[in-house]
C-alpha cells in the first residue's frame, strides 16, 4: 500500500469524525507528522498506529474550546437532498446508527482494514470486534430496510 492510500484512509476516517474538510485535513497531516516525529521516518508506517494518533487528535479537537461557531463552515454534503433517493436512504440509515457502529463499519468495510488493525485502532479485543461488527451490520441492514420502505 502506498502512502497516498494511507493518507486517503486516515483523511476519510478523520472527516467522518470531524465533518469539516479543513479541520480533517489538518488533523490528517498532523497525524503523519506525529508518526514521523516518533519513528523518525514514514518509510515503514503502521496503519494501526496512525489510526490511534488520528483518533486521539480528534478527541483533543473536540475538547478544544471553539473560537468560531462550527456550524457555519460545517460541511453540508452529508445532508444534500438532491441525491438519488436510494443513496439518500443509505445515508439516512447510516445516520441512525450510533457513532461507534458507524466507526466500525467505516474502518472495516470502507477502509477495508484487517481485523487486527481495527481492534488496535479502537482498543478492543477481537471477540468484542466481531460482536460489535455483527450488530452494526445488522442494525444498518434493518435501518436500511425501514428507510427504503418509507421512501
Amino acid at each position: 500500500m502506498d502512502l497516498e492510500e494511507a493518507y486517503d484512509k486516515i483523511y476519510r476516517y478523520v472527516y467522518f469524525r470531524m465533518k469539516n474538510q479543513a479541520i480533517a485535513e489538518d488533523i490528517t497531516q498532523e497525524t503523519f507528522l506525529r508518526f514521523i516525529g516518533k519513528k523518525g521516518n514514514i518509510h515503514v508506517y503502521d496503519m494501526r498506529y496512525l489510526y490511534t494518533i488520528a483518533r486521539n487528535l480528534c478527541i483533543d479537537e473536540y475538547r478544544r474550546p471553539k473560537a468560531e461557531a462550527l456550524p457555519e463552515d460545517y460541511d453540508s454534503s452529508m445532508q444534500t437532498s438532491d441525491l438519488p433517493e436510494e443513496r439518500m436512504a443509505v445515508r439516512d440509515a447510516l445516520a441512525k446508527l450510533s457513532p461507534e457502529d458507524q466507526e466500525i463499519l467505516l474502518l472495516r468495510h470502507v477502509n477495508n482494514e484487517p481485523v487486527g488493525t481495527v481492534c488496535k485502532a479502537l482498543g478492543i479485543s477481537r471477540f468484542a470486534l466481531y460482536r460489535r461488527l455483527k450488530s452494526a451490520e445488522d442494525s444498518f441492514r434493518s435501518s436500511l430496510e425501514v428507510e427504503t420502505d418509507e421512501k
Binding site: Y15, A24, E25, L106, H109
Partner: peptide
C-alpha cells in the same frame, strides 16, 4: 457504504 462515507476532496494532499 462507500458512497455514504463520502469525504470531500483533500486539497493539500
Amino acid at each position: 457504504l462507500n458512497d455514504a462515507f463520502y469525504a470531500p476532496e483533500a486539497v493539500k494532499k
